[in-house]
Design a protein around this nucleic acid. Structure first.
Ligand SMILES: Nc1ccn([C@H]2C[C@H](O)[C@@H](COP(=O)(O)OP(=O)(O)OP(=O)(O)O)O2)c(=O)n1
Ligand SMILES: [Mg+2]
Ligand SMILES: [Mg+2]
Length: 896
DNA sequence: ATCCTCCCCTAC
DNA sequence: TAAGGTAGGGGAGGAT
């Protein structure tokens, strides 16, 4: 049973159409003011308050708009900088990108109205992070302290002047809280209880609060976003790179000489990675810390604190070590007590010691590394190695911005990019360098300068004949350097490389190899292929055999298909009863489901992962609110049909949970993963829409046209909002205004890999129309792509489609489409927009069926009262078309 | 042989 | 205090 143990406006893609949005916003606002005065307000409690509603809310945006009007507030259809953002259930990827201190639950509005006064919005923050969190909930000794806290709060928080002007009520509110606080203080332990409960999994906002502060969550999400970003760029690009010309102009003419650097097989693979990424970003506005040992961490460090009762670090650390010893013993065939090894937990002292901090260092400067400090290390350990280390806080916004600039800088020159993480990628420069006729060295220098001047952060690059060489070259180049691992250097270079530094060789494998007597590549070259396979398995053995010789046959993978969606929390999990468990599972399911909507997938296999305190482990964990020493249980269910529905997921997950029969008190971690994915995205080929829709239908039904209408509808509305806010700029010019949130997080359907190994799940591939699409687009992979605009690509595509598809009954199907033109309806705004743009760009005369599709779509928009967007569309169409007949018709519709 | 489930490992 | 996520490759061993 137990296994082993602003630009005020969001970039919605229309801004290039002539400053239309600004005018639009102003006009809407005027309209709105007039309207609300006319109606006679019920109260003025929201005077001076403006809101912007993001995503789904209860009550819905329309309702909130009414309420604001009736109570003296302002509702913005598009976000302005002073707006409070009203939201109730943002997925976390979205969360990262907002001014969290202003994201407020809709209850703030409704409850303010029902209590006839403006309540403190801080009590309704959707996300409280440790910095702006209201301090009142925590234990305070005396009043002065408390008030001091509040004062500091208001200034730090940038508390809106609105709040200050209505401060009478605010102060009433604070006084009330203070009284409660005093009362609680008298009943001494009560207060502790309260503060405890806001910090664990039992608290309703725990998940958001945790994710909001989790570095690993952030880098994971960002990494995913950039993979998608590359997919998207490649999908939409015409593979022309004007920036190449500009760059070349700035360079000295290149004279190829005999000593020109050569890489293996003529390939020129670049790897690029930001230097101590989080630190570099943090140092941009802390120049006084440059040159010092610096670390990014949550803890201030160096403070001894009282021991929590029940903590037994010795026992817990012993368990970690013996588990590791056991593994090693098994791996190397040595009795486990004879093994010597280093554990992460070796140098950590007790909590009441100044070296006792178990806060992790996300990234540290090279000055700190010189003293032995490393990423992922405990703060306590680091302090011992480097007592004068300075700590700086996280800046997730900043990381996102810099990462985005990094990617877009490279993308100006080529899209042959494999995204690795937010600070790192591989780039196939073979075509690029040949086309530009410049040297790898010049390109590296130029690109690094460009990135540094745009972001203020240094990076390093390495070049080689394959990905392994490029990556090792980068390591050698760091910090702030570049290195070219040319063919003639490879052999000597590899000899001294530590096995641990090979990508894919981590703690377990390197320690195992060490027990076999190998620490370096040169040494491992002695080992036979057969022996390696035997020790490490066929794949890993073969890979390592090649790697230690500097060989790597794996090509870069530019485009990726997602194979799983998951969410887990292994921090702060403490339940008192089963109901709390269920509630948490529900919330986590909702998170997973939202992410699935975002990625436009549904899935067939639900896996629940639990971390449960091991029997021997102390109840109180060494790390505050950590998971401690645990057994991990994974249990999955296969569904007969794929789903993305929260209810279904919750049901499965709870059913698994019940079967496992776990004591809720012993739970330390929970995760939900969905695999066996299918795409729900209706993939559009730009232009020739009707034809495509016809042809897609058979494919879609083949693919089990299961995507429930409900999910689909929600998803498209959700995604639409999402995209409106976060759509990434297409043109590099946007990079000039770094204020503009650089978001890459918009959802796109997965696209089949163009290179690399075929996905295991062939069904998904076949069933996805994207696969077809992708196959047909391969022409764009060729250098010097002759196609000038998206339309050409499309025509070509649809022709191919016509040829490929055997079904001859095109005309019949076409009729079908005209009769039931739901083709565009339900598609995300963004896709429709792209489609129309491409369609108009083509200059192609609209076919009657296309017009019908658009009309139907707009009609639907009107029905849904989505007038703003309809209006935008109409104006856009009018500006860009000479054919007015159909649009007059549409306008008639709107006036109705 | 091939698939499935559970697990381990790695990377950022 | 502290924020130990997430996706992918791969292997063992049982079911088919
Ligand atoms: N255990 C880790 C490793 C990394 N990161 C985060 C912080 C890093 O800044 C970022 C990028 O990881 P890198 O491996 O690229 O490390 P750095 O960029 O910090 O340093 P380097 O100069 O070696 O690339 O990911 C983290 O939070 N925890
Ligand atoms: Mg880095
Ligand atoms: Mg990196």
């Amino acid at each position: 049973m137990r296994r082993r143990r602003d630009e005020t406006f969001p970039d919605n893609g229309f801004e290039a159409w002539g400053g239309y949005m600004q005018a639009k916003v102003a006009k809407l606002e005027d309209q709105f003011c007039a309207e609300s005065e006319k109606e006679g307000a019920l109260s003025h409690i929201f005077r001076g308050v403006s809101i912007y509603v993001n995503g789904f809310t209860d009550p819905p945006a329309d309702e909130l708009k009414n309420l604001m009007a009736k109570h003296g507030g302002v509702y913005h259809t598009y976000q302005k900088s002073d707006d409070f953002i009203i939201a109730s259930n943002l997925p976390d990827t979205k969360v990262k990108n907002m001014a969290l201190a202003r994201v407020v639950r809709p209850e703030w509005i409704t409850e303010s109205i029902s209590s006839h006064r403006l309540l403190d919005y801080r009590d309704y923050l959707l996300y409280k992070n440790s910095r702006n969190q209201r301090q009142l909930n925590f234990v305070k000794k005396d009043l002065p302290d408390l008030f001091g806290n509040i004062d500091r709060k208001s200034s730090i928080d940038n508390v809106n002047q609105v709040i200050d002007t209505v401060s009478n009520e605010l102060w009433d509110e604070i006084e009330a809280q203070v009284n409660i606080e005093i009362k609680n203080d008298r009943e001494s332990s009560r207060t502790l209880q309260i503060s405890h409960s806001t910090k664990t999994s039992a608290d309703p906002n725990f998940i958001s609060e945790f994710y909001n502060n989790s570095r690993l969550h952030h880098i994971s999400q960002l990494g995913g976003c950039f993979k998608q970003h590359v997919n998207d760029m490649r999908e939409q690009s015409v593979f022309k790179f004007p920036a190449r010309v500009k760059l070349k102009e700035t360079l000295e003419p290149y004279v190829p000489d005999a000593k020109e650097i050569k890489f293996e097989k003529g390939k020129k693979i670049m790897h690029i990675d930001m230097d101590c990424f989080f630190v570099s970003v943090g140092l941009r506005n802390r120049p006084e810390l440059r040159g010092k040992p610096v670390a990014v961490t949550h803890s201030k460090g160096g403070q001894a604190r009282p021991k929590r009762p029940g903590v037994d670090r010795k026992t817990e650390f012993y368990l970690y070590r013996s588990k590791q010893a056991h593994k090693l013993g098994k791996a190397a065939g040595i009795p486990k007590d004879e093994i010597e090894f280093e554990s992460r937990v070796d140098h950590i002292t007790d909590e009441d010691d100044k070296y006792g901090s178990m806060s992790k260092i996300a990234s540290c400067s090279y000055e700190a590394r010189a003293k032995g400090v490393g990423n992922g290390m405990f703060m306590g350990t680091a302090l011992k190695l480097c007592p004068d280390i300075c700590t700086i806080p996280y800046d997730f916004e900043g990381y996102k911005e810099v990462a985005y600039t990094l990617y877009n800088t490279i993308a100006q020159y080529t899209l042959d990019i494999e995204a690795v993480s937010c600070d790192e990628m591989y780039v196939d420069c073979t075509e690029l360098l040949k086309d530009m006729g410049i040297s790898a060295n010049d390109f590296a220098t130029a690109i690094r300068n460009e990135i540094k001047s745009k972001t203020g952060c240094p990076c390093s690059t390495g070049f080689g004949g394959n990905r392994l060489q490029a990556r090792l070259a980068t390591k050698k180049a760091k910090p702030d350097g570049q290195f070219f691992l040319t063919e003639d250097l490879v052999e000597d270079f590899m000899f001294d490389i530590k096995l641990k530094d090979l990508p894919g060789v981590g703690r377990q494998i390197s320690q195992k190899l060490e027990s076999l007597g190998h620490t370096t590549c040169g040494s491992l070259q002695q080992m036979s292929l057969a022996a390696l396979k035997c020790q490490l398995g066929v794949k890993t053995g073969t890979q390592l055999f090649d790697q230690c010789r500097g060989k790597d046959a794996n090509p870069l993978t530019f485009e990726t298909v997602r194979k799983s969606v998951s969410a887990e929390v292994n921090y702060g999990i403490r339940f008192e009863n089963n109901d709390q468990c269920y509630e948490f599972l529900k919330q986590l399911s909702a998170e997973v489901s939202l992410r699935m909507q975002q990625f436009k997938v549904i899935g067939k296999c639900v896996t629940l992962k639990l971390m449960v305190r091991a029997e021997e482990a102390p109840v109180e964990t060494a790390k505050f609110m950590g998971h401690g020493f645990c057994n991990v249980i994974n249990k999955s269910t296969s569904l007969s049909t794929a789903t993305g529905d929260v209810e279904v997921i919750v049901k499965e997950v709870i059913s698994i949970f019940k079967k496992l029969n776990i004591d809720p008190n012993e739970m330390r971690g929970v995760g939900i993963q969905i695999t066996k994915l299918e795409s729900t995205a209706v993939k559009l080929i730009k232009g020739a829409m009707s034809k495509f829709l016809n042809l897609t239908k058979p494919l879609k039904s083949d693919a089990k046209n299961e995507s429930p209408k409900k999910v689909n509808a929600d998803s498209s509305k959700y995604t639409q909002d999402f995209n409106d806010q976060y759509l990434s700029p297409k043109k590099p010019k946007i990079e000039l205004s770094p204020k503009k949130s650089p978001i890459i997080a918009h959802a796109k359907s997965p696209v089949g890999k163009r290179r690399g190994r075929p996905p295991k799940n062939a069904k998904y591939q076949q069933s996805s129309s994207n696969h077809l699409m992708n196959k047909f687009l391969q022409g764009h992979n060729v250098p010097n792509n002759p196609y000038k605009d998206p339309m050409v690509k499309i025509e070509r595509t649809s022709k191919t489609l016509e040829v490929k598809v055997e079904n001859p009954s095109t005309s019949k199907e076409l009729k079908h489409t005209i009769d039931k033109p739901k083709g565009l309806i339900g598609l995300p705004w963004k896709e429709v927009r792209e489609l129309l743009r491409a369609w108009l760009d083509s200059g192609q005369a609209p076919l009657p069926c296309d017009i019908k599709l658009i009309s139907a779509y707009m009609q639907e928009m009107v029905v849904n009262k989505n007038l703003e967007k309809t209006n935008i569309l109409v104006k856009f169409l009018r500006r860009n078309t000479k054919e007015m007949g159909n649009h007059e018709w549409i306008e008639m519709l709107i006036e109705k």
